[in-house]
Design a protein around this nucleic acid. Structure first.
Lengths: 403, 403
DNA sequence: ATCTATTTTCTCGACTGTCGAGAAAAAAGC
DNA sequence: GCTTTTTTCTCGACAGTCGAGAAAATAGAT
């Protein structure tokens, strides 16, 4: 249902717009803001004055330019007006980063994870301690942190900040919101890494040309992830991370780590490929962790023509292709981007992938989707984090208004 | 990307809101509108005055009420301020209905379709002629028709008003927009019937309690349709009709009418069930049309314990269950509603359906989705038509403003 | 028949917001 | 020091919403 609108909302929306423009371009002058946003010059004056008074943006000194008339003065987000903590959780390490409101990385460290003493409670203690350490090192107070953006490769609840399932914690849920709530005022966000990559790519695609409609990111590795970014009817970006890895592929794919049979992951995840390559019975409970070197060996023998190894990769490709064809059926045709450690085996997966894709009507009607392998995943994930966290903060600021 | 907002947009939004409230409740007084919309009384005065002056709404005479104070005067959409034509295309007949702006059915007739002389051009001529006839019978001018809402059970392009694939026209596309454009000023809308049912159900669910998030409608029949309704983050309803029937189920399902192998429809559509029941080779090009009586016979023998007939229905159920589990994986858990002629065999499908559903992690985590069989599909489709067409008209009116 | 209590609708002034045009500011060129 | 050019700021007009209270219209009481 629609909700009522008012002049305050108008201001809120337009403030957001100005902040978003500033964010995208780094710094802009009065006239440039007007051009970017389409707002009247007078409106820009009012909004920038308000944001400057609130200490959210500031004029930049250096005006190096050789124009004729009155020099432009640039506005930019005031870097010290807030901070974001970015946390990337992977199976063997946790990376903590501190970023200021201008999007500049201030500090970063990693902590190895001890696989034995895990359990959500213990992890929670280590986690909060690490956050404290991050702040201490840069002399920043807890309530200057406006957002904590966390990511993992595993299943995340769409509503809150709950980690629903992971190979490390199993079915035990981990609620970061609850973990941090009384002490931290920061907004807590938890997202799947593929979602963040999709977000970053979508933002880039939007910059480039207006033709962007939707895209999908498939992450290949120990587990299989999917990030989906689509432009809604009203023009806003809608990103999500559906449960692709554990979507049903075919019961023949065998037992999955999650306990079900026939997940895509059970065929296309590292342990699934290993199981097929070594002809382990498909109802064997799969290995907790497959070292990359092991996978490299299988890939090498596949490239040398070893039948079963080659088949394992091909069958993984078919599982992915079928899965993607289903995504396309249930959403719409869209370009596919592939990331993750598994991309190094893409040559081996490729044939099965196109084969698996070609089986559906949608693909037959619209042709094969464009498939691109991504190199700089690290960077994209981080960009996605910042994009989401900072624009969430911007929205909060615009909503707070003039108190 | 966000777009700029302005005071005009505020008015537009709030006008829409008033119209929508009036539409839902039929007629409302000044105070009731204020309560429904949350707008201030003064604002209601301005907006209703404007809409009344434009002839979109009118005061209703009869004020039967036994209150004390000043009697309420009711506003209602003025029935003669516009008309909608609703067209339902099915494989053997086309139904044309004329409805006024108040949502009241004025006239309706059906035309049988001759299966031999079909072809999009011939159909187009019959179609436009029928529209003319509908108007003549009620003495309504062409430019009083503000929307033409068309539906079929087949595949529809998400962007325009193009019928992309149907068992009758095959790959030949039928573009209604192009067919009607120069002569008719009406907005042309083409939707899948399952989408319309989903829309109608979603609107009802929203009325009832605020707890509505999403739902899916599966239509069983000669072909298999899916309608999806979800509440977006900003609270607006997002309905779609993904290509569920031709989503890949499993290659073992055999050749589909669409030319691919392994579509859900090839297993769960009427001809798929028939093929399995009679053990026809699964790469046989399936029957163009299976009479309902034939299906009834198979069902009867299945209920009497005939093995192959029972298996055919069960395997159809599994295909549906697997498909729905994939929808749930790629979207979110949601209640399922089943419509279409095939619901009369639901007892036979049910076991396979739950079996097919239970195979996925998502279902294991969240439990089986609630499944409801719908009785009054006719009514729901029509309601969906009206809901979409009338609210689209309302939006147009609000956008037009005071010219 | 008139008055009063009650309820609904309408109106007025205050406030917030956007916009266009032109004034003011600030630098470069002459 | 004056002019030109470009940018930023300011002012008045206009559109929209809101709260409060005035006006309208009825039922019941006197």
């Amino acid at each position: 249902m629609l909700t009522k609108s008012s002049t305050e909302l108008v201001r809120q929306q337009n403030s957001s717009l100005v902040l978003a423009a500033l964010r995208r371009k780094g710094s802009l002058s009065h006239t440039e803001i007007a051009a970017q946003t389409g707002l009247a010059s007078a409106t820009i004056s009012v909004i920038t004055a308000e944001l400057e008074r609130a200490g959210i943006i500031a004029k930049i000194e250096q005006h190096v330019q050789g124009g004729r008339g009155r020099p432009r003065v640039l506005f930019a987000p005031r870097r010290t007006s807030g901070y974001v903590i970015v946390v990337r959780i992977s199976s063997d390490t946790v990376q903590y980063s501190l970023v200021d409101y201008g999007g500049v990385l201030l500090d970063r460290f990693e902590e190895a994870r001890s696989h034995d003493s895990s359990g959500t409670a213990a992890f929670g203690r280590l986690f909060t301690a690490a956050l404290e350490r991050l702040l201490n090192r840069s002399h920043i107070a807890k309530d200057e942190v406006l957002a904590i953006s966390i990511s993992s490769k595993w299943l995340v609840a769409a509503d809150g900040a709950r980690l629903v399932w992971s190979p490390v914690f199993g079915d035990e849920q981990l609620d970061f919101e609850k973990l941090l709530r009384p002490e931290w005022r920061a907004r807590v966000m938890l997202n799947n890494e593929s979602l963040l990559v999709a977000q970053a790519l979508a933002v880039r695609a939007e910059e480039k040309e207006g033709g962007f409609r939707s895209l999908a990111v498939v992450s290949l590795g120990h587990s299989i992830g999917l990030g989906l970014a689509r432009k809604g009817r009203s023009g806003e970006l809608d990103v999500s991370a559906p449960n692709f890895g554990h979507m049903l592929h075919a019961t023949s794919a065998g037992l999955c780590r999650c306990g079900s049979y026939g997940c895509i992951e059970a065929a296309a995840g590292f342990y699934g490929i290993l199981r097929t390559a070594f002809q382990v019975p498909s109802d064997t409970i799969p290995a907790k962790f497959v070292p990359l070197s092991e996978m490299d060996k299988i890939a090498a023998s596949a490239r040398q023509g070893h039948r079963m190894a080659g088949y394992a990769f091909r069958q993984a490709g078919v599982a992915l292709g079928n899965g993607i064809s289903r995504v396309i059926s249930l959403y719409e045709p869209m370009p596919i981007f592939v990331t993750g450690q598994g991309t190094r085996y893409f040559d081996l997966l490729h044939k099965g992938l196109t084969e698996g894709l070609a089986q559906s009507l949608q693909v037959r009607l619209e042709g094969l989707p464009e498939i691109t392998v991504l190199a700089d995943e690290q960077r994209l994930v981080f960009d996605g984090h910042l994009d989401r966290a900072l624009s969430a903060i911007d929205a909060d600021i615009a909503a707070a208004g003039h108190p």
